[in-house]
Amino acid sequence: MSEILTNSGLFFALLGAACATFLAGTGSAIGVGKAGVAAAGVLSEEPSLFGKVLIFQLLPATQGIYGLLVAFLILTNTGIIGTPQDISLQQGLLYFAASLPIAIAGLFSGIHQGNCAVAGIGTVAKRPDQMGKAIILPAMVETYAILALLISILAVFGIANVNI
């Protein structure tokens, strides 16, 4: 049993990469989905707004990409991509922990940024000239995904230098 545990460092690292991708990705998918539904509704009345509402739909898409980014960093750092490396249990758990900020903040900020983007699409449908203001509001939500991404990236970079 203990042998299994000591050898499962890589598993936890991979679990971290998976969480970062699928949780943040789920958040983005929900957000982009909601915004897409609203955008399609607007297009049925005002096809000329396509370019504008598309931008709103894309705003919540970033969380999924941030998740992918952290996952990829974990995969390369642990040698799942590239040259294989020995990953101790502690290191694996550390990678897992490092993935959590972007995984969870990405999930929720993606959903709520989606809600905000839906509202922004409503604004643009009525007043296309107010695009500049409407686009800033969903971006406020994204701040927290960016902060989470930063901590996740710094943590993943840092783990290699931690002596365990």
Partner: peptide, 11 residues
């Protein structure tokens, strides 16, 4: 808040 300069650059 300016840490986003780094985060988005790295992204």
């Amino acid at each position: 808040s300016y840490s986003r300069l780094l985060a988005l650059g790295l992204a």
